[in-house]
Structure formats: C-alpha cells, structure tokens
Write a protein that binds this DNA or RNA. Structure first.
Lengths: 309, 309
DNA sequence: TTGAAAGCGCTACCAG
DNA sequence: CTGGTAGCGCTTTCAA
C-alpha cells in the first residue's frame, strides 16, 4: 500500500496558528479555550477530518478504552448472544472489544486454534487493554489446570478481570457464577455445548437402559441434537420424552416441535458482567450482588399443547 | 483497582546493566548482541516476565498487529464460522482481531447498536489497526448509502481494506465477491439472514398464490424458519416442497428433516480474504484470483431419500 | 557491538 | 487563557 499521509496534532496546531497544547484542549474539552481560537481549531480539525492517534493517547493516559473478551467459541449461540449484549454496553461506555476464541473444547466447525489461554492473556496485557472478561472455558472444568491458574493470576495482578465461572481460590478476579442446573438432576449425561453432544447424550442414556420422560438440554443446539437422536430411535417428542432447553433464542420458536426453554436471562448476565468490569476499571472493585431467577417458557416440546405435563 | 507496578524496558536495562537500546535489540532479535549481555538481558526479562508495551511499539513502528473486522452480526452462524477461520489465520500471522458488529438489519436476538458503520471505521483508524476486513452489511444492498460510501472511501484511503461484497466504483478497497444465487431463480422472496425471514418468505410466496416445489434458503436459519412455516401451513417437507440451504454447518445434519445444503466453502473464502488483507498490509495490493465451486450436499430435506428429485 | 539521543503523537504540568 | 516543555515506553539512527 502506498504511503498514506497522516495528519497529526502538530499540523492542526500549525494551520490554526495555536500551540499543540491548545489543540489538545479543544480535543478533550476539559480546559477552557477562548471562543475564537476554539472555533479556528475546530475548523481545521474538520477540514482535515483529524482524529487523534489512540496509541499516543493511550501511552500517556494509561487507558486504551479497549476490553479483552476471552471465550471458548463465538460460533456457539450462547457466547455470541452474550457477546452482542456485552458489545452494546461496552460501546455505550466508549469501549471496544478485542475478541479471543480459545476454542477450548473444539468448535462447532471443527476449527482449532493452537494458542493456549496464557498466550491471549499476554497479548491482551501487551496491548494494554483496560480490563479482561473471561467467559467459561478452562474455569468451567472440575479441576483447573495449574498453568492456567498461574496465567490467570498474573493477568489479574495487572488489570481488572471479571470471570463468568466458578470461583478459584487465591486469584484476584471478580467471579460471577449464575447457579445453573438446579433441579431435574435425575439423569445427567451431558458433556459439552454442541449439537453432537445432545445426540450422543440421548444415545448414552438409552444405552444405559434408563427410562426417562424428560430431557433438559443446556442449550438449543444440544436440544436439537437430542431431538434428532430421539427421532432416530423412534422415540416421539414430546409424546414419549419432553425436551427442554436452557436458551432463549429466537430460533427455539421455530423448532419442530417448538422448544420449551428455561430463560436464564443471559442478556442480563451479560450486562451485569460488562458493567461490573467497567466499574472495576474505574476503580470500583466490589463484587456485585445479583440474582437471576430462571423462568420457564413453555412451548410444544414439553408436551403441554397435548395436555401432558 | 490499586496501582499495579509495571515493568518497562528501562528497568530491565538498569538491572541487566546495559542500555535500553541493547534490551530492545535482544527483544527484537534483529541486531547482534554479544552472547554474555544477551544472556544477562534474557534472564532479567524472564525474572520479571517482561513483555514490551504494544502501544509504544506501535507508535514508533507504525503497526499494531491488529486487524479490524466489521460484520453485521456475529451471532449469525455464517459470520461466526467465517470469523473463526479468519481468527485462526490471523493468529498464525501474529494478528489480533477487533470485532465490530454493526447489527445492520438487526440481530437474531433483537439487540441493536446505535452506532453506524462510520463510527466503527473512525474508531478503527484511531486505534491504528493495520487493516480492515468488511464482511457484508451495507455493501450488500442494491443501492448503497452515500454516507457509507464516503466513510468507506475515507477508510480505504488510510489503510488496506478488504471487502466481501460487490464492488463499489471509485473506492480503493479489494473487493471479493463469491458468486452466489446462481440458478433456481424462479421465485425469490428473501430479505435477510434470520429464521424469521425464512418463515415470512414462505408465507409471502404462498400468499402470492405461486406454486413451488423447492425452496432454496440462504442459510440454515432461514431454512429452519421456512420448514416451520411450511409445517404450519400443512405443507409437507420434503414431499410437497424440498428445502435446500446454502450453509455447511454441523447442525444441518441434525435437522428434522436433515438439511440438504450447498457447500459454498465459506472456510476457504475466509482464509482467502484474511490472507489477501495480510498480504495487502505487507504491501502487496493485488486482487486475488479465485474460484470457489459450490458443492451440493444431499440430505433428507430435498426428498432424495424418497426417490424424489 | 554498544550507548546516547532523537523522536513516534499525544497529554498535562508549569509559568506567564 | 495560553504556549513551552517534559515525558509515556519504545525503536532506530549515529557515533564511538
């Protein structure tokens, strides 16, 4: 690409016949500048469509207005819907998001990254993000890898970190963990977030010769896989087995049969975590008190339209 | 958050008893440093786990190793699968991605951002990204908004931009546009990428009193909505109408009925565009020659398992 | 091979 | 209210 000329604060100052300090002042609007000079500067800024270099700014102000988001897989509706909510709140507060998919546990598309979490953590600190949001991944494991703990500990010793996941001892992050999976614990056979997992979960249950009349999936994808498996086994939904999901995506409404879901208010959770992080960035490091009451959204897949319950 | 001490190249230099220039040299490994000094510096770096500030680096080297990705909606499987592929290639080349969802046309979750494309473009240039990748959105419209064109023109006059979308005159981007929607043009009623669009498309077709025996959806979500609509109208899939999608996601395999799809090799497209952008960043601005031949993946929804074709 | 020093573009302090 | 100036942390000449 050919050399593009770029305008700096110096050229604006020159042309407006003021010092760069004055240009900086009108740019930031925090100090008082005389009306004439201000107008002159603003005109030149507009003329060249000047906008200050965020690197130089960040270097001195020590904030980049950028937040790192680390999650397993953005192609999973659970994470993408969270991400969109997070992005919206971040935007409102003037932040931009650096997204890192660790692809921990693989992805729905068979794509794998080779970097581990610590790589992303380092990169994010190098780029001087103002804070990091971690959604699931390693932290969801029963036993968390020691290297990961080390990396997370180091990360959180350098900047504010909010984690959606269960608390780890001796690590200075804000952990936010909505209570999932209460009730209906009779039969559990799930391992992951994907369609294939729902499919094999049903097969596992059936091969165990256990009998069940309801299936609670962690998300819509898993529910879809389960329904497919049930059909393949000639088990009818919802006559023989009711299927319930835990997502609240619009597609549930279009499923055949329409999916009954538990609304866990992911949107609220997303807003909660990003706002917590932003306020931590601003110096307020208290953990938020919250409670998100799950809510059942009844549709066909649990059998209510047939009078079954 | 309490003040975190941060280590700089100066402290490394002090402790290793060399100049900062020497530390910089071992950091970058481009100039020769005597073995003893090099070892000394490396030890101190390791001791403090030092990693250089990317802002300072970017300010002087004029590259941030960051790429902006602007797309309508990451919660749409088409975009998220592309994004994952893009991210993988970017990572391999040492780049990080700044993701911007314009939510142009709304999102599958009803979330809307209030910023328009030009806002993201400005932010990306401010943050000195090395290049920008634009996937769909405004560029997909029949008539592109003038403000958008202006913004895109300005953006591409400052840094390399690769666009997946149809070419716009007089704008210095690299446009890459896979040929979609060839054949089967008998009846078109689609407007967008979402499940609801598929649902209403079917209703539109039916209300027009047109008769059709096949429905080609732009993606799996639209196909799902169409199937639901057909069922609601007591039209059987695939007996009465065959449904075909253009995605290649794993969930298609689990649909009821299993979705017949056209594989358009989005993964290859993703790799193509990111590699094109990276090579443009490195100074090679030629448009790539390519052809992606779509491939039909036949499953139940088109009726083949019943001997229909 | 090495260190001193001049910036990258900006903010914020200091005098005036 | 204003301009000069000292850096932010780093890379890269330029001499030695």
């Amino acid at each position: 690409m050919e050399e593009k000329d770029h305008i700096t604060i110096n050229q604006i100052a020159d042309e407006a016949k003021v010092s760069i300090a004055t240009v900086s002042r009108v740019l930031n609007g925090n100090a008082t500048v005389s009306p004439e000079r201000k107008k002159r500067v603003e005109e030149v800024i507009k003329k060249y469509n000047f906008s200050p270099n965020a690197l130089a700014r960040g270097l001195i102000s020590r904030q980049t207005k950028t937040i790192g988001v680390v999650l397993p897989d953005i192609s999973n509706p659970y994470f993408s819907s969270m991400f969109l909510e997070i992005e919206r709140s971040a935007l409102e507060a003037g932040y931009t998001l650096l997204l890192c998919n660790t692809l921990f546990g693989g992805s729905s598309h068979g794509i794998r990254n080779t970097k581990e979490e610590s790589y992303y953590f380092q990169m994010l600190t190098d780029k001087q993000v103002d804070g990091v949001l971690i959604i699931g991944g390693q932290v969801d494991l029963t036993t968390v890898d020691d290297n990961y703990k080390q990396a997370l500990k180091r990360l959180s010793s350098q900047l504010p970190v909010v984690v959606i996941g269960k608390e780890l001892e001796d690590i200075n992050c804000i952990f936010i963990h909505p209570e999932n999976g209460q009730g209906n614990e009779e039969l559990i056979a799930l391992s992951d977030y994907y369609t294939g997992d729902g499919y094999s979960a049903i097969n596992t249950l059936v091969s165990r010769n256990t009998s069940f009349t309801a299936f609670l999936a962690i998300n819509d994808n898993v529910a879809l896989g389960a329904e497919r498996a049930l059909l393949d086994l000639s088990i009818k939904v919802p006559e023989d087995v009711a299927v319930i999901s835990c997502d609240q995506f619009l597609t549930g409404e279009y499923h055949i049969p329409r999916l009954t879901s538990i609304n866990q208010h992911h949107d609220l959770l997303a807003r909660l975590v990003i706002n917590t992080l932003i306020s931590a960035i601003k110096g307020n490091s208290s953990s938020p008190k919250f409670s998100l009451t799950p809510e059942l959204v009844i549709r066909e897949s649990c059998g209510t339209h047939m009078g079954i319950r």
